[in-house]
Design a protein around this nucleic acid. Structure first.
Lengths: 181, 181, 181, 181
DNA sequence: CTCTAATCGAGACGGTACGTCGCGTCTTACG
DNA sequence: CGTAAGACGCGACGTACCGTCTCGATTAGAG
């Protein structure tokens, strides 16, 4: 019953949506729990019944997004078709532009960092391919960090840019060098 | 006189040293002004006579480091000898390992971000070379971000690693792709 | 049916017993509704189905005790045999020592106050005798308050003391002065 | 310096005055720290820089009053002139009627209790005379408790009553029985 | 011996006050 | 008369408890 209580799902959805909305208005650090609760039309204390901190809510949101993205891209990565993977990635971002912008741009600080960490964890367990000359962990950290940097730049500074172009940037700057012998 | 007053220089040095020391003990966000003042053996209000906020002190510290580094590397970049530039970079880091670790690793969050922004600004005004197919701003942001990521990984997770190796990683993952046609 | 439902009686008994037990462990103010419900092995909301507040439960408990006591003592008071009345009082307390200690000592604050108020109400309606020179209401308030103070002291600070002694204290300090011309 | 800083004295005075004022408007339990701070025109957190809790502020207020009262009455008690002592007491209360009413009547619960405890402590250290047949501690507790009860009744229910009358009530009901052989 | 309604447990929820912490300003006392 | 100590206003934090509420799941007692 605890899990299936529809009130819980409703409240959590509202909190997630509230944070996503707020983060597109001001940096994540500047969003207070009061803000989130008010926007979600939820009691202040109720926030803490579901998440121990703003950061935990953030994590929850990011996890959903990253998980989805990963199931989309992992198969392509395995075929070594890095161009296709990059393209799938940018397409996905474009389809969720509002949310992604909130996550990557609105929350410049802790949010991006948390996303990076989560993405790294997800990519790590997948069988990401890293060349011999490069430590595996560094390969992952670098590819995730650099990709997010490029995506953040896109959404923040050049939103009109074609998804195809950005996919090419990612492929040439990040994926291709990692596929080198 | 304001500038040349040796007491002022002494106080600022103490504050800078205090922050650097503290940041190697706990994340920058967790360092309070009280902490800094106490460590610098300076009155609490005195901090604010020299810096309007923690962040400003951070900026002050980062600026010094980045400026120095840039004068070192800019000439090499201009000759397109990216390998030498990378090597100069890692050597410099190695020579200032304690401080750099404090800045890049200890302060995972805001500090790294501030450093990134400062470094981007510095690199931007220099005539950094970016290939035609890549927007200039993106080239800079990516190269600075990715380089710092790699350096952070080095200092945090593989400190025994040879500076030469790390220089190679940077060159192959960051500089070389940017030199591609 | 509502009244005769055995489930209701069972629940209320459990709640009363729980509060009495808890009040002997910590001050009444520190006992929460959660505490009571948990101790009574009853759902949290169930408490409010029977009592609108902690205080109401308290009142319920105190009423029972005071009513019983009053039926015991009133006849003796009417004969002006104050010594016998005092003795009957201390004997009764001794027979219900655990509960009375919980009420008078454990709950130093609100509980004693509530008991006092209840006792005053009960004594008032009886034809308590107060000398001419003393306002009737003051006579009652003083006698109840002082008696409870002495009983509380007995149970808390000198439990080994003979019931006879305490009866004498009450008689000489409280009842006798009220019988003076 | 900590002690002599006039800001501290000013703030504490304001807090004391605020609580006294509030307590004459509603029961002490219903007074929140916010109320006190707002009335004293002081920041919320500032309250806690001076008192760890509402109760501590209460104690501070009561101590001043009781101390003053005690220096007034102790000499008279020592001469066994209980009537004069009672009269001095009621005169003093009358001169500080507003404050005393706030303390004894406004704060029915914890405040009266705290005052009682403080008064007991003060009276205890003085060489209060208690007859042989009565335990010393009980003599003190009873006299303090009963006196406060009578004073509370006076201020709350019969404020027009002559101070002389009340002094007589106290003398005949409380002091005289304690002077009995 | 059902059937129907009251009662129950579980606990989510909106509130309100708590006491703490840190910032950045402003007053004070002291050298 | 300038400067270090630290009191202050402010506002967010995370916690605790209140009293209300909505759920199913028992469990009476009436038919």
């Amino acid at each position: 019953m605890t899990r299936s209580d529809p009130r819980i799902a409703r409240t959590r959805d509202a909190l997630r949506a509230a944070l996503v909305a707020l983060v597109s208005e001001k940096p994540f650090e500047a969003v207070t729990v009061q803000d989130i609760a008010a926007r979600a039309a939820v009691g202040y204390a109720t926030f803490f019944r579901h998440y121990p901190s703003r950061e935990a809510l953030l994590t929850d949101i990011a996890d959903g997004l990253i998980g989805e993205l990963h199931t989309l891209i992992a198969p392509l990565m395995r075929t070594s078709d890095t161009a296709a993977a990059a393209r799938a990635l940018t397409d996905y971002i474009e389809d969720h532009r509002a949310l992604c912008k909130g996550l990557l741009v609105g929350a410049n600080d802790a949010m991006r960092r948390d996303i990076t960490r989560r993405a790294i964890a997800v990519v790590s367990v997948a069988d990401a391919q890293v060349p011999m000359w490069l430590p595996h962990a560094l390969g992952i950290i670098h590819s995730v960090g650099a990709t997010l940097t490029i995506l953040g730049w896109w959404l923040e500074h050049d939103p009109e840019r074609n998804a195809d172009d950005v996919a090419q940037f990612i492929d040439r700057l990040v994926f291709a060098p990692l596929a080198a012998p």
